[in-house]
Simulated assay, not measured.
Amino acid sequence: MSTPLNGASAMSLPEIVYHELRNAILNGIFTPGQVLRQEEVAQRLGVSRSPLREALPKLEAEGMVVLQPRRGYTVAALDPEEIEEAFDLRCLLETELARHSIARRTEGDIARVYGIISEMAGLTTKTSDADVAHWFELNQKFHNALLMPAGRPHHMRALKNLRGVIEPYIRTEVRLTGDMLQAQQEHSQLAQTFVNGDVEAFVDLTRAHSQGTRNRLLQGLTRNEAHDPQSE
């Protein structure tokens, strides 16, 4: 994990700590259910506990951490039913955004989508932690680029929170399987339909992509539990 003080930024220190800790959770450095001992986390980030105390409530509001009595903050952990519920909500938001986005897209939006997906294509066969993390960063940018033209900031804010809760599970599963090719194929179809301007096809593909991601994740969790001696 990088130390936030190493990079020049216009953000305040609590904002930098918030982004650093959020990325650490997304990338599995801090795992679901793990207790975030503030002294240890602050030391790892290279900061005092004061900016960390300001960052944690913001992550709690997004559902990424949970404040528990006598334990402090822990990384949010979801069971399969909660993951399925989160994906159902995500699908509702994404399909609604997709319907409005494709009607308002511009040539600049199309160019942005193609630029991101082209960069992602070069990473689909990479296996290093840095390359996989970069692919996931681009993945978020890609989906945002598809949906931001809708001009619905409240929908996008709610979607960001949902993604933050389930993203650590998705990233863990992809790291275990190393399979980004299926997602990339679906991304290519989404991008092409976005360009074509076919509203119903774009909405249908958006729904199918969200449901496919959910199904792969839940299947992966089931496989992992079956091979985990502690679950027996």
Rank of each mutant, 00 (worst) to 15 (best):
G122I: 08
A183Y: 02
L159Y: 02
E225H: 03
F142L: 12
E81D: 14
H19M: 09
K160M: 08
V203Q: 08
R152H: 13
R152I: 11
M120V: 05
A226Y: 06
G63K: 05
A55D: 06
L218P: 09
V203E: 09
E107M: 05
L13K: 11
D228Y: 00
N139F: 08
R207I: 02
G46V: 03
V199I: 15
R49Q: 14
P168Y: 03
E173F: 10
A145N: 04
N27K: 11
G220D: 08
T3D: 15
N27L: 14
L218V: 09
T106V: 07
H187G: 12
R163N: 15
R216W: 06
S188L: 13
L67N: 14
M11Q: 13
G33M: 06
Q219A: 12
M1Y: 02
V75K: 03
E232D: 10
A130P: 01
L78Y: 09
Q189F: 09
E82S: 10
M64Y: 05
V203I: 13
G28F: 01
F30R: 06
R152M: 15
C91D: 12
Q38L: 09
A77Y: 02
Q34M: 14
R223W: 12
L147I: 07
K58C: 00
R49T: 15
F142G: 02
I29E: 14
F87Q: 06
L59I: 04
N144F: 14
E15S: 12
H143T: 11
E39P: 00
L78D: 08
A77F: 03
L181W: 04
S50K: 12
D131S: 14
G151W: 07
E173P: 02
M156W: 02
T95M: 12
A191M: 07
V66A: 08
S188F: 00
N6D: 15
Y73G: 01
A208H: 08
A191Y: 04
G28V: 03
S128I: 07
N161I: 05
Q230N: 08
L13D: 03
A201H: 06
A111D: 13
I16N: 09
R214N: 07
I117W: 00
N144Q: 13
A191S: 06
G151S: 10
G212T: 09
S210F: 06
R214C: 13
L89F: 10
A111N: 11
P51I: 09
G33P: 09
T213S: 13
R175K: 15
E119T: 12
G63T: 10
L59T: 02
E173A: 14
Q140N: 11
V75Y: 03
R71E: 11
F202S: 04
V47N: 02
V66Y: 05
E119W: 00
E173H: 14
L97T: 04
M156N: 03
L176D: 11
D228V: 00
K141F: 06
S2T: 14
M1C: 08
N161P: 00
P168I: 04
Q68I: 11
A24N: 03
